[in-house]
């Protein structure tokens, strides 16, 4: 059974992914993750829903890792979650998408990865702006969290740590 890891903890998933085939549905409920197509066609309705119910998780949408970043940036208003689908774990496009959603589009909500998520990809996701990811089972979730924690510090700047090591560690010792 898929397991959600959020902020380095295994948690219950309050969200439901609505497949694009459900496009004809009426106004989506709280905690729905809509397809991007569905989301853009209902941008106004969802914004209102979100504003009305601050205590609920809100609404969000999901996209493929290869989606055009500029389009996503234009439709972030009202979304409290963006989920990025990795069709293959070795496809790094979703990582660039994560970085840009955080650094360029200023998205501060939940950024979640799902799809073919190998636990060993978690360390890259974590540093590319994703604060949540779905892996295939409990064991994978534990491995993923451990893999993130297995490296104390890295050389480069990242979505998580905007300063590279050479700026942070004076006279690096």
């Amino acid at each position: 059974m898929p397991v959600l890891v959020k902020n380095l903890e295994i948690v219950d998933d309050p969200w439901t992914l609505i497949d694009s085939s459900d496009k004809g549905d009426p106004v989506p409920g709280e905690g729905s993750i809509l397809s991007f197509e569905h989301w853009t066609s209902r941008a106004h309705a969802t914004t209102e829903t979100c504003v009305r119910s601050l205590r609920s998780p809100g609404v969000g949408f999901w996209v493929d890792g290869e989606v055009d970043v500029e389009r996503v940036c234009d439709h972030l208003d009202g979304a409290s979650l963006v989920a990025v689908k990795f069709r293959a774990f070795a496809d790094g496009r979703g990582l660039s998408l994560g970085v840009l959603l955080r650094s360029r589009c200023g998205f501060t909500g939940e950024l979640r990865a799902f799809g073919d998520i190998l636990p060993d990809l978690a360390q890259y996701l974590h540093r590319s702006g994703f604060n949540a990811f779905v892996v295939e089972n409990h064991r994978a979730a534990e491995v993923a969290i451990a893999s993130i924690q297995s490296i104390t510090d890295h050389y480069q700047a990242s979505a998580l740590q905007p300063e590279p090591a050479f700026r942070r560690i004076s006279a690096r010792g």
Partner: peptide
């Protein structure tokens, strides 16, 4: 150093 385990460019 910059390219070593780069978060975005290792895949």
């Amino acid at each position: 150093q910059w390219s070593t385990q780069h978060p975005e460019f290792d895949w």
